[in-house]
Design a protein around this nucleic acid. Structure first.
Lengths: 343, 343
DNA sequence: TTGAAAGCGCTAACAC
DNA sequence: GTGTTAGCGCTTTCAA
């Protein structure tokens, strides 16, 4: 029964050592009310001497809300997701929240519920779901009512606060650039992500329509590691393909690899552009023309929106950085029928 | 005072609805003792009907240990770290632990303490520190006594349980391969990571010594995004450089880029090998010869060791997968002085 | 097998 | 300003 000192100290120990009541200790801990300088110092000294740390469970039981936010994602290791998560972590750390990260293995209910129960069993202040892939979207649907939630990336899901980059605009810029180079149309290779059309494809389609250009069938890559390579080889065989817009930089690299395997040269015979400005895009040969997206900034905003929800119902929205076209070497003017490049 | 139903249900609500005591509810919740089939069913029904979830704070206050493990890291977005973290998350999820992730901004005490207090304020069961960079190592030093800790990657730190891959062996294989190709020595470009020598450099040095080859001065890359490019250009100017071992695949790509800028061709004039088998290594031109490392598996083991620490003092160790050399196209036999390749 | 009751360590009224 | 006290929602003896 006697707190002889072996175990972790409690407020009682601190109070006793400082010669004050536990309420006073609590007050200095939270700065919630005026405390005389004298006792303030004594409490602080006692806290320090004991190496006291308030028990978080007791704290949140007594009313303070949890300082953990959870992020849920299907994939956590692709460039985009990594950056978004990094952004979330950065902002939540700055705001004094611990970020938890849980991957959802599969889109089936069991995997989702298992991942979800981990989160729900931990008194989190709110959750951010990465809805850039089907698994994330599926997970979102099983989050019970009453859990503060925001989604990030991908399409907005009915009613849930959502933050995203202007991907249609970014994709549109790329397509417009390609069209401006003289290509009559632009083919599209999409990331597997979306069950329905994703925003990048949307932007590609809109830009093509706006220019009155034909909209070829979208080719979808699969989850397989290098599925873009086969697509590249296939594209090499299709006549009339002079420009290809890919749903991500890595996908563009795979497509270029496949094109090269089939003997097509980029950008001389086929122009290829990516999406996202991957760190290796500039080192790629030929250096990849793409559009820069501030994924980490997107993560920052996702947290900020959630934090707004936690603090109160002030639904702030945040402006996103405009997409920046990064022109490098993987796109050029098409070769004219006669054989010579236009430029 | 009356729990009319608006708020989240408690054990009391469940007990009342099921017509049993709260103790019985707790028993079925934890399966801690025999409960008659009749009451068991009624309680389960009540739990289900109310959508009851035990309050985690109350639970851990009442004695159950936290089900959160924290991971602390300097960098969280490089391939290696991303994979290690993915591995940790995977294993901890399987074991019913939520994983929190916090990046440590800088190596200064303030950044570290800020990151640490986030973790320490949350009743975590244990922490895993990624000591592959200087920031991680610095953070480790400030973790207070009594916090279950394991380090992963990088050099073992005095007394702290540590798991890592056999990086010296992996580096050695690469060097031996290069030497076997006919190179008289192998130059080395190290990742900035370590204040002191890292294990990859160690393996490189040992292998060279074992073969009786000269050990050139190690060139260190910096934290700057493409610092390896400049090193590549520099290497191109240095006569006698025929083979280069790089501390990571991305670094190897940068070095190759610099070499190419300076007009050197890989592997004809200079052989370059990386470390880690990055997903893009196979797509790179020329495809990168490297050594595969199971970083995600390393993360799995890190969690398992921590879990062992949590469950009891049974200091299990886990065997690591043997490094696998991945021979691709970026290394070849050196050109002999006369100008013709040996092979 | 079951219920009553005593806390877990803290915060927040409420008195003084 | 400061102390006393009543919980927060659970788990767990201890009796019955």
């Amino acid at each position: 029964m006697s707190d002889s000192g072996a175990n972790t100290p409690t407020v009682d120990d601190v109070a006793r050592l400082a010669g004050v009541s536990i309420a006073t200790v609590s007050r200095v801990l939270n700065g919630s009310a005026r405390v005389s300088d004298d006792k303030l110092t004594r409490v602080r000294a006692a806290v320090h001497e004991l190496g006291f740390r308030p028990n978080p469970a007791a704290r949140s039981l007594a009313g303070r809300h949890a300082r953990i936010i959870a992020v849920l994602a299907g994939t956590t290791s692709r460039f985009e997701q990594v950056e978004i998560i990094r952004g979330i972590e950065e902002s939540s750390r700055a705001a004094g929240y611990l970020m938890s990260l849980t991957a959802v293995g599969d889109a089936d209910d069991d995997s989702i519920d298992q991942a979800l129960s981990l989160v729900l069993d931990q008194a989190v202040a709110g959750v951010i779901v990465l809805t850039s892939d089907a698994v994330g979207v599926a997970a979102l649907r099983r989050i019970p009512e009453g859990i503060l939630t925001v989604t990030v990336s991908g399409m907005p899901q009915n009613g849930v606060p959502h933050v995203s980059l202007d991907e249609p605009a970014a994709a549109g810029e790329l397509v417009a650039y390609l069209l401006g180079l003289g290509h009559t149309t632009v083919h599209c290779v999409g990331v597997p992500a979306s069950p329905n059309e994703d925003e990048r494809i949307l932007g590609w389609r809109r830009a093509l329509r706006a220019a009155g250009a034909a909209t070829p069938e979208v080719i979808h890559s699969s989850e397989e590691p290098n599925s873009g390579c086969a697509i590249g080889r296939q594209l090499a065989r299709s006549p009339g393909v002079t420009a290809v817009f890919c749903g991500s930089d890595v996908l563009a690299m795979e497509v270029m690899h496949g094109l090269a395997e089939a003997g097509k040269s980029v950008p001389d015979e086929v122009s290829v552009v990516g999406f996202g400005d991957h760190p290796l895009a500039a080192l790629w040969r030929p250096a990849l023309t793409t559009v820069n997206q501030d994924f980490a900034g997107l993560g920052n905003r996702a947290f900020l929106v959630l934090d707004g929800l936690i603090s109160g119902p002030l639904g702030r929205t945040f402006a996103s950085a405009a997409p920046a076209l990064v022109v490098r070497d993987s796109a050029a003017s098409p070769v004219d029928p006669g054989g010579a490049a236009l430029t």
